[in-house]
Amino acid sequence: MSITLLITDDSTILLEAWKYILSFDTRFQVIATCTSGEEAVEQAQKLRPDIVIMDINLPGMNGIEATALIRKSVPETKVLGYSLHSELTYAWKFMAAGAAGYIEKTASIKEMTDTLVRIYHNQPPGCKERKSEMQMVCI
């Protein structure tokens, strides 16, 4: 009973890196990767993953719009905002669109897996998470 994941990123390098790294963690199962917003919405409706890891900069439909669509059409699927940007505005935009959490691309593997697990269990951000994230979520 691993957590099913859909990873969306226009950078194939990171996409491949995460897919490879997470395949070693039994708690997770990457069921699909995609490089555009439209593709992400389509795959999410079709595969109904537990969590969609959603990049913000995508060709065509961007990550925020895609998040909103997924949350509307597949409410059980959770979305984790995922970006190189550290500015809070991006986090806010994701949360406003219905994302369950937000994480920077530069985060470590543990941070990523911990966040995925916490989201999956509908837990609020733990003490270990970065203060900024906590604050952001509480707002």
């Binding site: 950078s11 390098i13 990171l14 491949e16 890196a17 995460w18 490879y20 790294i21 070693f24 900069n57 190189l84 691309k105 530069t106 470590s108 593997i109």
Partner: peptide, 25 residues
């Protein structure tokens, strides 16, 4: 720098970390 080089380096960082945690990989 941000979208391209940073992502590449991030990918390298993730991979190397993974390698350090799983030396037998």
């Amino acid at each position: 720098l941000h979208d391209n080089i940073n992502q590449i380096l991030t990918a390298v960082k993730l991979q190397l970390k993974h390698y350090l945690e799983n030396p037998d990989a």
